[in-house]
Amino acid sequence: MPDILLFDLDGTLIDSAPGILDTFATALARAGIAPVVPLDQSLIGPPLHVILSRIAGIEDAGTVERLANFFREEYDSSGYLKTLVYPGIDETLRSLASSGSKMFIVTNKRIRPTLRILNMLDWTSLFAGIHALDSVSPVFASKAALIRWLLEKHDIPGQDACLIGDTPDDAQAAHENGLQFIGVSWGYGRFSPDVLRDLVVLDNAAAIARLC
């Protein structure tokens, strides 16, 4: 298994659902908009504007941006503090770092709350790089594009790296960049039976360290 490990964040290392879902509700209430879908953890994963458009049932860019501003204000000040760590993840990350694995974060989450969460958890120093879709301007169009940029920036051949994530989109991003992929079962994504036949999907965090 490669020593260069790329980790998704939400649904893989952290359970951000409590803070995110509470903040969705607050942002919608501030805008006077009722959600058109249940506010549950199945929403988490895609970029913020995509989720807000879906839960509000609105495609108007101005309204979605207003909701996004409300969300950012609430989440960046207090919502992120409700973040939980999945069992065994902290120990696994520290074990991998101490064994010499070079680790990166690649996330659809905005970089500002990402950095605040990692700092809160005392994880920042464990990673060689922390990258989000909005780490550059203009923002990356997809996680696949983000990973492509990261590999070029750090001169990493795709076959020398592995992506660990919880969604089919993560698996696709790895595939598009020639990376190995390891799925985790405890996150927000669900892998279809036909996809599962071709994937390694782990049921506990300790298995990451054993495999990597």
Rank of each mutant, 00 (worst) to 15 (best):
M1I: 13
P2R: 01
L6R: 02
L6M: 09
F7P: 15
D10T: 04
T12W: 00
T12A: 01
T12M: 03
D15A: 00
G19Q: 05
I20P: 00
I20T: 04
T23L: 02
F24H: 05
F24D: 08
A25S: 13
A29L: 10
A29H: 06
R30P: 01
R30L: 09
R30G: 01
A31Q: 13
G32H: 09
A34Y: 07
P35Y: 14
V36R: 06
V36I: 12
P38D: 15
D40N: 08
Q41K: 12
Q41D: 15
S42V: 12
L48A: 12
V50C: 12
I51K: 08
L52K: 10
S53Q: 14
I55D: 02
A56N: 07
G62P: 09
T63G: 03
V64W: 09
R66K: 14
R66A: 07
A68H: 03
F71A: 04
F71I: 11
R72G: 07
R72Q: 11
R72K: 12
E74R: 07
S77V: 15
S78Y: 15
G79L: 08
K82G: 02
K82E: 14
Y86Q: 11
G88D: 07
E91R: 13
A97H: 14
G100D: 06
M103N: 08
M103Y: 03
T107N: 01
T107A: 00
T107K: 02
I111S: 08
I111H: 00
I111N: 05
R112H: 09
R112F: 06
L118H: 10
M120P: 12
L121I: 15
D122E: 13
D122C: 11
T124P: 04
S125V: 13
G129W: 03
H131D: 15
D134V: 09
V136A: 06
P138A: 08
K143A: 07
K143E: 12
A144F: 12
A144T: 14
I147V: 05
R148C: 10
R148F: 07
L151A: 04
E152G: 02
K153W: 01
K153Q: 11
H154E: 14
H154L: 05
D155Y: 06
I156A: 02
I156T: 06
P157A: 01
A161Q: 11
Q172H: 06
A173I: 15
H175D: 10
E176W: 00
E176G: 01
E176S: 01
E176Q: 05
L179I: 06
F181Q: 03
V184C: 02
S185I: 10
W186C: 05
G187M: 07
Y188D: 08
F191P: 13
P193D: 03
R197H: 09
R197W: 10
D198K: 06
L199G: 08
L202K: 03
D203I: 08
I208H: 01
A209M: 08
A209L: 06
L211A: 00
C212E: 10
